[in-house]
Design a protein around this nucleic acid. Sequence first.
DNA 1: AGGAAAACCTGCGTGC
DNA 2: TGCACGCAGGTTTTCC
Length: 272
Amino acid sequence: MPELPEVENVCRGLSEIVPQGSTIQSFEFFRKDLRFKLPIKKLQSFKGAQLRSIERRAKYILFKTDRGVLFSHLGMTGQWRELKKSESRGKHDHLLIAFSKNIQIVYSDPRRFGFFDWATDNIESHPRFKEIGIEPLSEEFNADFLEKFFAHKDSPVKSALLDQKGVAGLGNIYVCEALFRTGIRPQKKARLVPALKLPLLVKEIKKILEASILAGGSTIKDYRNPVNGQGGYQDQHLVYGREGQLCSICHSPIKNLRLSGRSSFWCPTCQD
DNA sequence: AGGAAAACCTGCGTGC
DNA sequence: TGCACGCAGGTTTTCC
């Protein structure tokens, strides 16, 4: 479900609900088998920790505390929301964190592809983050970076952009959109994308992500922010989910091609 | 070694 | 109405 803009909105929403300086009072685990087994003992050791901030890295939500970092990945259908004391939990609520001042947040995830883990303050030394590439909204992400990352890659450019070891945070929606807006067909081998096109690709990726963050992310089906609101960026999708509809530029039908097991929406006329 | 496919799950829409 | 099938904003594991 959630890509960078959605995760960013979840972090911002959670920050509104749980103020900086709140203390973790307790955890409740309703299910311990998510994508991976929850490190319950370790998570319990955060009881009493003081929250410094809630931030995003790639598609991860980082709860930064004075005892280290607890982090959450939403998988496809993960959701965080506030659970008021009077409310009862839902079928797919798996984990609850109670903070000071009676603030509770709950993690819900029907497909259970999400997961949790913890790290020291220096998260980049955690094995999981060692494998994670650079932030697409950072200065580091530029045409030179892409040129090096794409060099010798025989995989389709679409798959290369989805590879979190390169640029971290893009997912199926935003890669499809970015390739359409730069006129690059998704199945083109990464190493064959003309270097001349890379500055535009970088620019469009940043533009799309920023616009989507601003719009509250994309809600196709499941995504909701922590106050249960939908995103608005789906209205600006030009190809994603639009198979058979007419291309906004040339009016030929949008196609859907399967690449590495993922649907890839594209316009055969506008993209080469 | 790198790339593709399968696996991990539940729910929903479609077509018979 | 029911059931089988395919598909879903992701990532890891397995298999060529």
